[in-house]
């Protein structure tokens, strides 16, 4: 069977004009237009460009929601198996439009999508997680190479072939880590890499160092004696028996437990289920991780007004950062609604 492909391009590549016509609204034509000819040739009959959707770059950029909706309707009318957009090279508005229409078609029409952009095109940062973006040179001089690599990837996606790594397939990665078996062991790769580094040769790390987010500190507490303080922990302290089945590592949820009747955590009422440390001390006296006993004493002494009635608990070991961030957002929201003024969070 021949797969049905729709091609998205801008007014310039459709031959409608340059900047002067960048405000043209979306239009749809049967068959190929402009670079679609080369695309069609490269597909070698395995897939056919059945239609082309064209939109002015300024129109798309200035009316994104509207332009997206209009283009999606036109694409949908062709009943395609795939959308190919661009290449957009280093054209900013065109690149964003290519990324946006691909992301939308993937999400709304459930079809695979491919575009091609220069690495620094703003469309890359915005959409690389939502579509396959083949990396191109910065100008249309690289058209043939870009189209050829787009077609290779497009046909694999259409045939649902198993894809290799982003590096191997030649697209800009979608921010997902996946395990693969290499040809060499980790030890051999490590020694190879070290020798290159020592010799001053180029080497490719297998994981770039991440940049962690920072935020401005919240304003301090003005009068401690009037505040409600909540306790949280990622140290795996839970009511005995782990009623919420929180995982010993790679936690996917947190627990919220009412401690309003408790003065002290003991080996009878609470326990540690954390998979990452020797739990002997924490099981003997969970207060060494979640300091309820002294908090109660200091509450009674009037150091602060009130200990919040609920503690929030999860395990931090092997827990994906994205999950931990999600827990933080959910807990933060609840604490805010409950009128809590400050938090003490303990981690192991």
């Amino acid at each position: 069977m021949t797969y049905r492909v729709v091609h998205y391009i801008n007014q310039f590549y459709a031959g409608m004009g340059g900047e002067d016509t960048a405000h043209v609204p979306p239009s749809s034509r049967d068959g190929i237009v402009g670079p679609g000819l080369q695309l069609q040739n490269l597909l070698q009959g395995e897939a056919e460009v059945i239609g082309t959707v064209i939109c002015g770059d300024s129109y798309y950029g200035e009316n994104m929601e509207k332009a997206q909706a209009e283009c999606i309707e036109m694409i949908k009318a062709f009943k395609p198996d795939m959308l190919i957009a661009g290449p957009g090279f280093n054209a900013g508005r065109y690149g964003v439009a290519c990324g946006d229409i691909c992301a939308a078609a993937g999400e709304m029409l459930g079809i695979p999508t491919v575009t091609a952009l220069y690495g620094e095109n703003p469309g890359v940062e915005m959409y690389h997680k939502k579509t396959y973006i083949v990396e191109t040179s910065d100008s249309a001089r690289g058209m043939r190479d870009a189209l050829s690599r787009m077609v290779t990837l497009a046909l694999k996606l259409l045939k649902k072939e198993k894809l290799g790594t982003a590096r191997f397939e030649g697209y800009i990665h979608r921010g997902i880590r996946k395990s693969f078996f290499h040809e060499k062991s980790g030890a051999e790769r490590g020694v190879d890499m070290l020798l290159k580094k020592i010799r001053g040769e180029a080497f490719e790390t297998e994981l770039e160092m991440p940049v962690f987010k920072k935020i401005d500190p919240a304003a301090p507490i003005a009068d401690l004696s009037k505040v409600t303080i909540a306790l949280c922990t990622s140290g795996g302290i839970v009511p005995f028996g782990n009623p919420d089945h929180i995982r010993v590592s790679s936690a996917e949820k947190f627990g919220k437990y009412n401690i309003s009747e408790l003065k002290d955590l003991t080996s009878e009422n609470y326990e540690s289920i954390h998979g990452g440390y020797d739990r002997v001390y924490a099981n003997d006296n969970p207060d060494v991780v979640l300091p309820l006993d002294i908090m109660r004493e200091m509450e009674k002494e009037g150091v602060f007004a009130k200990l919040h009635d609920f503690v929030y608990c999860t395990t931090g070991t092997g827990t994906a950062v994205a999950n931990a961030e999600g827990f933080g957002q959910a807990i933060g929201k609840e604490l805010k609604e409950a009128g809590v003024d400050a938090v003490i969070l303990t981690s192991t």
Binding site: T165, R174, S179, F181, E183, K184, A187
Partner: peptide, 13 residues
């Protein structure tokens, strides 16, 4: 295994 005993690795997709 982090001694690099096997050929398993992780890459971007």
């Amino acid at each position: 295994n982090e001694l690099g005993f096997s050929k398993l690795g992780c890459e971007w997709v």
